[in-house]
Design a protein around this nucleic acid. Sequence first.
DNA 1: GAGTGGTCTAGACCACGCG
DNA 2: GCGTGGTCTAGACCACTCA
Lengths: 263, 263
Amino acid sequence: MSSLPSPALDGAAPAGGSAPSQAPAFSPLYQQIKGLILHSLQHGEWKPGEAIPSEMELAARFRVSQGTVRKAIDELAAENLLTRRQGKGTFVATHAERQVQYRFLKLLPDSGDARGEAPAQRTILECRRLRAAADVARALALRTGDAVIQVRRVLSFAGVPTILEDIWLPGHTFKGLSAEQMASHQGPTYAMFELDFGVRMVRAEEKLRAVLPDEQQAQWLAISTSTPVLSVERLAYTYNDAPMELRRGLYRTDTHHYHNALS
Amino acid sequence: MSSLPSPALDGAAPAGGSAPSQAPAFSPLYQQIKGLILHSLQHGEWKPGEAIPSEMELAARFRVSQGTVRKAIDELAAENLLTRRQGKGTFVATHAERQVQYRFLKLLPDSGDARGEAPAQRTILECRRLRAAADVARALALRTGDAVIQVRRVLSFAGVPTILEDIWLPGHTFKGLSAEQMASHQGPTYAMFELDFGVRMVRAEEKLRAVLPDEQQAQWLAISTSTPVLSVERLAYTYNDAPMELRRGLYRTDTHHYHNALS
DNA sequence: GAGTGGTCTAGACCACGCG
DNA sequence: GCGTGGTCTAGACCACTCA
């Protein structure tokens, strides 16, 4: 309404005086609104699974039209941070939702039903607190020697060991994470992270390679050392593009395959 | 305007009489407009790289408001079928664009610049016309024995052979495709397909596995048979979800990795 | 300065979920 | 029947491109 498309909300005031070396960085209103909603999301004003205020309420709060907050929410929904449900409201997305469970797991059985019923049996091999090696620290934006928690586990589908992975987490954020917790929670591990540690994984990047397992790895996966496996290194991020988890996994691809949709 | 949100455009008339076993399948206006634009795209009313009519023109043509065609175009742009350029117009997307070249190629060098300058050197090993085997036919929605063109090639980066792949194409659509053509065109192969055959690849699905190369494959890739490689099977689709290309590739992952962003 | 896409508004009405 | 998100409109103004 009265608020101009000026940077009143994002603080990027155009310099009046000296040489404007950079572009004025025009930022549309809905982007600023998006930033405000994101801020509330980050700071836990609404928890995963909860409804956020209605579009009308937010429009009133921010003194903009419904259409503007609508566009902001549209983008956040497209990024999987929010979930819209017609007639009910807009909700903070969560990895616990039936629909998008295991959103980051792209391994599918070769034959049969999409994401076959069996929700993976977890075997925790290790869960300990240690000091971050250089590479792990760099990935997680920590300093070498900072406390991290390492979890090693095997995921089995229909009784067949299929994934062997190491998980590294910042010790500070995940203080108190136990093997018990890793083993016995219901549903996706990322859902447990949300519930028990208030950490929501928002996006991730993976690097894939074909490798041969070593003696011990082969044993855990019940294959021979001459059976190639898929090496998957994943860096998962929370809000604000902050890295929060490093995973190094070995996937058996004799019974499963990594599925990727390109568009 | 005068046109109600009735199915005047998509023909899904709600049954007046007998038991409506299915939902009336309400389809918003902008979806119908999207369908009409898609139809024009499929039938080549506007060619890859060309501008489509302005939003105002389309709004007038379809007798709807600018906002409605805008939403239709928004979705088509999100699906990479159109490209918007502020101040210039909306263009039919193409694989020849500098920006999104090699959009479907997820292999990156381990160290160094994103998509390092060298645009891959192609070596065509084979290019022949043959009858489709059962699996190839099924993938391409052909009948076993139908004509297909098979191309085998090696892609090298900085002189190092990195990808060995077989490509199968429907013989009918790609009639006359030659080894010469596969070898000497500029830019992405998919851009050549657009220019020479009017076929635009819109999306694709890949299945990844870790495998060991056989004797001959290892030779082409200049590695040993005990070096695991990434097996990538890709099915690429044109408009209308029609499968148009099957690829089976072996990627070296000792110097490169397959990169995937999850969100 | 004309034309294109991009933003923002205000208001009407529709489809959906739930009490 | 109410509240929520979803659609559609009409019009104003802004940012960008190009001649």
